[in-house]
Simulated scan of single mutants.
Amino acid sequence: MEGQDNNYRVSPEGYYGTFGGAYVPEILHRCVEELRESYLRVIESEAFMQEFSTLLRDYAGRPSPLYHAARMSERYGCRLYLKREDLNHTGSHKINNALGQVLLARHMGRRRVIAETGAGQHGVAVATVCALMGMECMIYMGRTDTERQRANVEKIRMLGGEVTPVESGNMTLKDATNEAIRDWCRHPSDTYYVIGSTVGPHPYPDLVARLQSVIGREISWQLQEHEGRDRPDCLMACVGGGSNAAGTIYPFVDDERVRIVLAEAAGCGVESGRSAATLHLGLPGIIHGARTLVMQDNDGQIEEPYSISAGLDYPGIGPMHANLFARGRAEVVAVTDREAVEAAYELTRLEGIIPALESAHALGALGRLRFGPDELVVLTVSGRGDKDMETYLSAKP
């Protein structure tokens, strides 16, 4: 891409500006170092790239379509395209990362895979790939999320994965991640931890962003086919930990001509005390092995987040996104539960697409922005809404 190189990607030491790093207990130091020393050599090798690309095409169903949403375009006064990650195998962008990391685990000689999950899509994706590759699979999921995402729990079990409900904290994504890390500490030699988002100690944020960057690369050549140019004017995605957003923006992040808009979960309102708007509310701190923005009190204790969306219910943010926000490269819109649900119903009724609640937050940001009629806007629909139907019905506007 053209444009000035502003070095928004990770440094050799694992930092995005002042954010990132690897803050892990001694027992995991060797595991993280081995991964850091191995990941680029493996994922950039011809053998890995060939197998990964083949699986993305023949198993996951890539490329995912880039769809011109004509009625939504008229509604918001721009040329709006939707990147349809909801049409991937397992129903979201999570399959991209799961395929890549389980392949990496196999290259590193690991046979047991663990993962955390919130909305359940990462858990389903990891269990799917473990079934494909004959790997042992353990998924940690907060008790609250096992109840509101019951269908995904049963999918994981049907695929041969084991689900461990987590009872600590508010029993959501943060707590599932805590428990997965504890498992990793108990089994450092034979276990690979597949982190589902651009969070955690280096190299995970960079690894996940690279594996998900297939989204942005496809956007580039698909726009060339549709519009005769290889970049949008604006990219939009939801952020919890930030993996679909990272994949969407990765090829464009140093091109200042491309506007980046991230939508986070305001819950009941940013100042309501029931929110997951980390970029608005967070302060620098360490969570799950990385320095980033964290929702915390005056004593540095993590505050419990809240969102109607299980996948955005996280008190931190990926260090890549924290840096983009801190440096003014990304605009951030905090979208409430109500706005997200209304946006989901609007897309459903205008375009016949039922989005996941996570993606609905990105859709909910459209009304806060102003576009010109010729502006090319690409919004990533990171997952489909099947898993959220009970919530949509109970929260119907």
Rank of each mutant, 00 (worst) to 15 (best):
V270G: 05
S272F: 02
G216C: 01
K387L: 03
R36L: 13
A310W: 01
I260G: 00
V333T: 09
S382P: 05
A22H: 06
R110P: 01
V253P: 02
E167M: 12
G21A: 06
A60L: 07
H361W: 04
V163S: 04
R148P: 02
R71F: 12
W221T: 05
P25N: 02
A176M: 09
R370S: 13
R79S: 05
D58C: 14
V42C: 03
T144F: 10
T54H: 12
A277L: 11
L262T: 11
M1K: 13
G160W: 05
D388V: 09
E167Q: 15
G241A: 09
L211W: 10
R257Q: 15
N6I: 04
N170P: 10
H122K: 07
A343Y: 08
C268R: 14
T380L: 08
M108H: 11
A343E: 11
L55T: 07
G273F: 10
L347Y: 13
M171S: 12
H361L: 05
M171G: 05
A180M: 14
D388G: 07
F325L: 10
A360S: 15
P12C: 03
V124R: 01
E26I: 14
A151G: 12
M1V: 14
G21L: 12
V335I: 09
N170E: 14
V194E: 00
R349S: 12
G109D: 06
Y76K: 06
L235Q: 01
A98G: 04
Y314V: 02
R75D: 12
E44T: 15
V381M: 10
R62Q: 02
P232A: 14
H93C: 02
D183F: 15
E46K: 14
C268A: 15
G20M: 03
K94A: 07
T248R: 00
M141T: 01
V102T: 11
R84T: 05
P315E: 06
L159W: 01
P373C: 06
G100K: 09
D386A: 11
A125S: 14
E51S: 08
V153T: 06
M1E: 09
G196S: 04
F52V: 06
V113R: 03
P188M: 05
L87C: 14
G3S: 09
R217Y: 09
L376K: 09
E44Y: 12
A266G: 04
